[in-house]
């Protein structure tokens, strides 16, 4: 091992390697497009901004997912929390659309949190059940069809418009990122989150109300998914069935690629940010290459395994 990686902390190494991998993707993609089309769209700011705008929705979901993973839980209810928030926001409409959408997220998070923290049901199964209930409620509400209601102007402005040439969705993502990063680094809640992820019993004995913190974490994750849903509805001008399905696994992958330990307690927000960018760029390079869905899935899986083999390996259990 060289001196550069020795001087890096355990949490920084994944971030650096993931960032390097992003460069590799950019270079490889550019070489491909240059050889085939004689142009380099991947290096044009317009194209990159457009890709990042789509990535903002994933980024916001991943920010919430990271909080939950940090306390060694997982939230599988994200897909239909996202869809429910979008559907309710569009069907309420008017100035209340966004508050109602976010309220749905808070409510789902509260239910998840109570089930996981107070009933002690494993989050894997409880959030799965909540996801099924939300899906059921939305199917009953919409009749199984795409809702006819449209996103409000504010939702469209936030998600699809640009300010000074930069998509507004990126500003929202940046705001969420700053909030989450500051909360994790600079507040007592952030310290509690890492403590619970490392050992909940120890955190409890140290006087942390671990169950309340768990509920708060799930509410943060719920509201993040809801925000992504509201924005996505604004971006595509309406809500649709299954709009959240494409966000669950990529958000978990982004968090883990960014160096957050899936067992909780370790990981930096910057890593999640890099993880999201990596996945978004990988997706756009693959679509430039006109890679069929089969190849995408295979490459997607291999990249996750490769990244984790490089820096995500666990320690042997020997005692």
């Amino acid at each position: 091992m060289n001196s550069a990686s020795l001087s890096l902390s355990r949490d920084d190494r994944p971030i650096l390697i993931a960032a390097l991998f992003i460069l590799v993707i950019l270079v490889a993609g550019t070489v491909y497009t240059f050889a085939r089309f004689g142009s380099a769209p991947l290096l044009s700011p317009t194209y990159l901004l457009q890709q990042l705008q789509i990535g903002a929705f994933l980024g916001i979901v991943a920010a919430g997912m990271m909080i939950v993973i940090l306390i060694a839980q997982i939230d599988l209810s994200v897909p239909w929390t996202l869809a429910a928030a979008a559907m309710m926001a569009t069907s309420i409409g008017g100035p209340l659309a966004i508050p109602v959408g976010l309220g749905i997220g808070l409510l789902v998070g509260l239910v998840n949190g109570i089930g996981v923290a107070y009933l002690r049901v494993p989050s894997m199964i409880f959030t799965l059940g909540v996801n099924a209930v939300m899906r059921g409620l939305m199917v009953a509400h919409t009749g199984g069809y795409a809702p006819q209601t449209a996103a409000t102007d504010l939702m469209r402005t936030l998600a699809a418009d640009r300010t000074l040439g930069i998509p507004n969705a990126l500003f929202v993502w940046a705001a969420v990122s700053v909030l989450v990063a500051v909360m994790l680094q600079r507040t007592a809640l952030g310290r509690y989150i890492y403590a619970i992820g490392n050992k909940e019993a120890a955190a409890y004995l140290a006087g942390v109300d671990t169950r309340r913190v768990t509920v708060i974490c799930f509410m943060i994750c719920g509201v993040a998914a809801a925000l992504a849903g509201v924005l996505l509805a604004g971006y595509s001008t309406k809500a649709y069935q299954g709009m959240g399905d494409a966000y669950l696994l990529p958000s978990i992958a982004a968090v883990v690629i960014g160096g957050t330990n899936i067992l909780g307690g370790r990981g930096r927000y910057l890593g999640t940010l890099i993880g999201v960018v990596l996945i978004v760029l990988l997706n756009s390079v693959l679509s430039i290459m006109e890679m069929p869905e089969a190849g995408r899935q295979v490459i997607y899986g291999l990249v996750i395994i490769f990244m984790l083999l490089v820096y995500g390996r666990g320690e042997r259990v020997t005692s």
């Binding site: 978990i252 997607y300 996750i304 395994i305 984790l308």
Partner: peptide
């Protein structure tokens, strides 16, 4: 030495592919 949940998430994508 990858956590099973994330390792099988990745291999699952490969198998679906």
């Amino acid at each position: 030495r990858i956590q099973p949940i994330i390792a099988t998430l990745a291999t699952g994508a490969v198998y679906i592919g």
